[in-house]
């Protein structure tokens, strides 16, 4: 057999035989599905914690909540996400059959801790005079936050946020520790069938790379749009 025939044969075994491309396709779809909803959850949790933390300084009622949030961030950042996933699947949600849902919860809760620190830094990066200007016009705290602080904070944290979501997408590659066939697991299954690691592993790597490059492009576009007000 020539090298080319070898190559075609391997490709065939990896993707075509037994319809294995379907396994990759469902792996990619699971990875995107988990990462997408975990991202949304991470943003929601992160924003909530950032708001608690930035408001706790002048609102005593938030003292206890602030401490709980700090504890959450400490625990989540202090333990590996694989361990969190195993605990969630085998201990906390042992009665839930839907392993994808458990994965979304795990990665969402994990990401929330990181997003909260990014969002807090973003809110604090906006000049205090902006809040005062909003309040002096009679806007309440909520409206000042939504219309004046958040848009400026978002612009400042977009690079860090993009980084976090790229990291999250790649971190979902440990989802296969529980019964989920994500992209990495799909590649691994195919490798164990064909006994040829080259194609499945490089394919998996390439698929992640394409997704990350796509995400980066979206991020760059957003950054350009938000920096429209900077040109002078």
């Amino acid at each position: 057999m020539t090298k080319l025939e070898n190559f075609i044969n391997s490709f065939n075994k990896t993707f075509i035989v037994e319809g294995r491309y379907k396994l990759f396709a469902s792996g990619i779809s699971n990875t995107i599905f988990i990462a997408f909803f975990a991202t949304l959850m991470g943003i929601a949790i992160g924003l909530f914690i950032a708001l608690v933390k930035t408001n706790a300084k002048n609102n005593r009622k938030l003292f206890v909540l602030d401490k709980i949030c700090s504890l959450y961030v400490t625990i989540i950042r202090g333990t590996p996400v694989v361990v969190q996933l195993l605990i969630m699947y085998y201990v906390i949600f042992v009665n839930i059959d839907n392993s994808i849902l458990v994965a979304i919860l795990t990665f969402g809760i994990n990401s929330g801790a990181y997003v909260s620190e990014i969002a807090r830094a973003g809110i604090e990066s906006v000049d205090k005079g902006q809040i005062e200007a909003g309040m002096s016009l009679g806007l309440d705290r909520k409206k000042t936050m939504i219309y004046i602080i958040f848009p400026q904070a978002l612009k400042n944290i977009l690079p860090a946020l993009g980084n976090e979501f790229i990291a999250l997408l790649k971190e979902t590659s440990v989802a296969g520790y529980v019964p989920i066939i994500d992209l990495t697991k799909a590649g691994d299954i195919v490798r164990s069938r064909t006994w040829e690691p080259f194609f499945p592993l490089y394919s998996v790597a390439l698929f992640y790379l394409v997704m990350v490059v796509g995400l980066t492009a979206v991020q760059k576009r957003l950054e350009r749009r938000l920096s429209e007000s900077d040109r002078n």
Partner: peptide, 22 residues
């Protein structure tokens, strides 16, 4: 106080225009 501030204008040393808005 928000209602009251709507009736009082304030101008700051550092302008505090909203940089993200026209």
């Amino acid at each position: 106080i928000n209602k009251i501030r709507q009736r009082m204008g304030m101008v700051f040393q550092h302008f505090n225009l909203f940089p993200h808005l026209t």
